[in-house]
Write a protein that binds this DNA or RNA. Structure first.
Lengths: 209, 209
DNA sequence: TAGATTGTTAATCGATTAACAATC
DNA sequence: TAGATTGTTAATCGATTAACAATC
């Protein structure tokens, strides 16, 4: 909202910067030029400078970028300076996989519960987090100040969940179901359409023969 | 290879066409104009016509597109007219989740085995598919004419797997580890970088407040 | 035939790359 | 100061949209 219109293409590159800068930090590299970064991350040096300058002049002429500072800046831009309460809907393999990923938690995405309509999961815990039934979904979300819902249900269940999410204050959905959810425009949906991804791979495989 | 250079942007839209055309078919809709399709799929009618015309004149003036035919054409383009043997490496929750997805199989991606270095999985079956140890990985791939490997290992294990894959005839990797694999340029890698996706969501959530 | 809608060319828009003055 | 490298403007490239003649 505050920023001028920054293109989605730029935004989608930011997590990659974040990832590579973390790696540089871990290797104790303190400064880096757009040219060197270009070599390891694969964007052109020009693009790197353009991208970063959308958000401010993080570099210094004749020196380059301070890795630690740049990492912090990008973390800030991505909204990683605070924690988010999240819940998963769908306790199947995928839901459980996401519940077990420690990296999300480390970035500040705190899993508060997993929901499932299937009573067979009643009483389960995954990675120390309770699996609950959907009856008290809305109440739980309110009481726990949940801000993001990961939808890991089947294709059929996903829109119903989205409808219920929309009646709460949650404004962000991470959707893994192979369907384009219909939601109000103030709700952000980020899709992981695995099948789309696999079909893209199969296209290129075919073309490559 | 045979086709003129079709942009990646176009290719990445194809699976979505495929998905929506399937839905139209299921609803027994026999023909559709670019204008109507535009309404449900969300691309402009102009873009739809441009996209499809990269591959041939599938429509008919005054009529529109035959849904069944178009669906078949796009299936062909995506390489869905034959089956692919695939294996999963990494028998954790994510690997198991993918093994349990019936939709991949239905599209022609036949899961032949799941591999894991961890002996604790020895003798396991997931969705009727054996979990094997990595010792005979290369032999298995050759004997079963495997063409695609899904990498569902941890970040640390992924590059090792990619290195072993490269010594086989496999030319396609579907990578779920949060790392950019180093492979020869004749190997196609399609990444599902979940963290990148989640961080994009968190950016937009922050911006939307 | 008249109407509808494609295929395709041309115009526009946006993103990437190149270039270089500013400056550390 | 001289060298390096950014920030930023200008040039290029590519993708999307608009327009319309062709044609079913």
């Amino acid at each position: 909202m505050k920023d001028k219109n920054i293109s989605v293409a730029v935004i989608r590159r930011l997590p990659k910067y974040h990832r590579y800068l973390k790696e540089l930090l871990d290797r104790d590299i303190r400064r880096i030029s757009s040219k060197e970064l270009s070599k390891i991350i694969g964007f052109t040096a020009s693009q790197i400078r353009q991208d970063l300058n959308n958000f401010g002049g993080f570099g210094q002429q004749g020196y380059g970028y301070n890795v630690e500072d740049l990492y912090q800046e990008i973390s800030k831009i991505l909204g990683l300076t605070r924690n988010y309460n999240v819940v998963i809907v769908g306790a199947g393999n995928l839901g459980q996989a996401l519940a077990n990923y420690t990296s999300f938690g480390r970035l500040g995405f705190d899993l508060k519960a997993i929901f499932d309509i299937n009573p067979k999961f009643r009483g389960f815990k995954v990675n120390d987090v309770d699996v609950l039934d959907m009856d008290n979904f809305e109440t739980f979300i309110e009481e726990n100040a949940v801000e993001i819902v990961y939808i890991c249900t089947s294709r059929n269940g996903a829109q119903d969940v989205a409808d219920r999410v929309q009646k709460t204050k949650v404004k962000a959905i991470w959707n893994f179901a192979p369907i384009d959810l219909k939601v109000n425009e103030d709700v952000i949906v980020e899709n992981v359409h695995l099948i789309d991804n696999l079909l893209t791979l199969s296209y290129f495989l075919k073309e490559n023969q």
